[in-house]
Nucleic acid binder design. Structure first.
Length: 252
DNA sequence: GCATTAACACGTA
DNA sequence: TACGTGTTAATGC
């Protein structure tokens, strides 16, 4: 009975070939870990605990970061790459998607509620993922006001996102859903590191929004005509974040 | 109709 | 060269 250190699903998602390199890369990604917004105002002691106890794994494109039904043992952060979190209905039908780019953290809800994970998270491209153990997370929760403030803001923001998403899925067309997804990906409050340029291919975007790549391409050109984004090679620049949020499919 | 898949040519890293 | 992108045609709901 030694539950500590058992993380079979994490191992499944880890690229075997890269395990040997983990020690070296862990050091370089430690800086990324501690530069997260929630980590900035921690005491030195807490920062030390965080970097000592958080494990960092690389996940290959298409690999699982966590799976629905898993026991929730950690708070998950994307240090590099892009992760798709998909909520699915009991029938197995996908109902909503959210993208988590570098700098984003998720899973605090499941951690707080102490229930099995209710969604899958899949790396859309090769990603570096941090797993903060429940104990460390609880320690921060018990001892740091800035950390609590970060969580409160993030939860509130996320709640708004999900409420909006339900509405959009039913009321809006593909182009507008694409616009909303782009705005959500770049939400500065949730993901401060993202800036205004998204290194996201159209295929990744298609997976995120639930459309074909061709349809996403068509939608992007529409948004480009509306001067909301600039489409580039393997990425795009968001010109008008507010405009994207408000985009309502000028069809009628 | 509208979106998807399949297939192709082209440009970029 | 390998991969992402832009486009078109055929197919399905």
């Amino acid at each position: 009975m030694a539950p500590i250190g058992t993380r079979s699903t994490v191992e499944d998602a880890t690229v075997g070939a890269r395990v040997a390199k983990r020690t070296a890369s862990t050091i370089s990604y430690n800086a990324a870990l501690l530069s997260a917004r929630w980590a900035r105002d921690l005491t030195d002691e807490l920062r030390r605990r965080v970097s000592a106890e958080t494990t960092i794994h690389s996940v290959a494109a298409g690999g699982y970061v966590c799976r629905k039904g898993d026991r929730v043992e950690s708070w998950i952060g994307v240090l590099d790459g892009l992760v798709k979190v998909s909520s699915v209905s009991p029938e197995g039908k996908s109902v909503s998607f959210i993208g988590v780019p570098s700098g984003g953290w998720f899973g605090e809800g499941s951690l707080l509620k102490d229930e099995p994970r209710r969604y899958d998270a899949v790396a859309l491209r090769s990603s570096i993922v941090a797993y903060m153990p429940r104990n460390t997370f609880m320690l921060l929760l018990d001892s740091s006001v800035p950390f609590n403030r970060f969580l409160l803001i993030q939860l509130n923001e996320r709640l708004g996102q999900f409420v909006a998403m339900v509405e959009y899925d039913r009321l809006l067309g593909p182009d507008a859903r694409l616009a909303k997804e782009l705005a959500a990906l770049c939400n500065p409050l949730l993901y401060p590191g993202t800036g205004n340029t998204l290194p996201v291919s159209q295929e990744e975007l298609a997976n995120l929004v639930g459309l074909s790549r061709q349809r996403v391409n068509q939608g992007l050109r529409q948004l480009e005509r509306a001067r909301l984004v600039r489409v580039g090679y393997r990425g795009l620049t968001l010109l008008d974040l507010d405009g994207l949020r408000r985009y309502e499919d000028g069809v009628r």
